[in-house]
């Protein structure tokens, strides 16, 4: 059902937790299922130096948030702003179609963080 990549992200949860002094933060949620994602960034000279996430909900949402943190780490703001849903789905190796809302919530949280 879930790719090896998703399973590994869930087991290891890279870049997990909050951040004391982020330069950028964004939150998104799915009111139907209650999924919630927060992305916190510290941008230094236009690049993501530190990134953390917090999430609750289904594994697809949590894995998507974790994947995004790995994708944007070290990247510039333009990269973060240009990310689209398929980039996340490709990174995850696939998500069951019924679970793609998780990637959408995580992406919205990132957009909220970088777009302000």
């Amino acid at each position: 059902m879930y790719s090896e990549r998703v399973r590994k992200l869930i087991a290891e949860l890279p870049n997990r937790g909050g951040l004391e002094n982020p330069t950028h933060s964004g939150t998104a949620e799915n009111p139907i299922c209650g999924d919630l994602v927060r992305i916190h960034l510290v941008l230094v000279e236009g690049h993501v130096e530190v990134v953390r996430f917090q999430a609750s909900g289904c594994p697809a949402t949590i894995a998507s948030a974790a994947a995004i943190t790995e994708m944007v780490e070290g990247q510039d703001l333009a990269f973060c702003q240009a990310l689209v849903l398929n980039d996340i789905l490709d990174n995850l190796g696939s998500l069951p179609s019924a679970r793609r809302h998780g990637a959408e919530v995580a992406l919205q949280a990132l957009r909220s963080a970088v777009d302000g």
């Binding site: 879930y2 399973r7 590994k8 087991a11 609750s56």
Partner: peptide, 12 residues
């Protein structure tokens, strides 16, 4: 979230 814990355990 129980499902996340299930997958984390399954990975191990």
């Amino acid at each position: 979230p129980g499902e996340a814990l299930l997958i984390a355990l399954d990975f191990r």
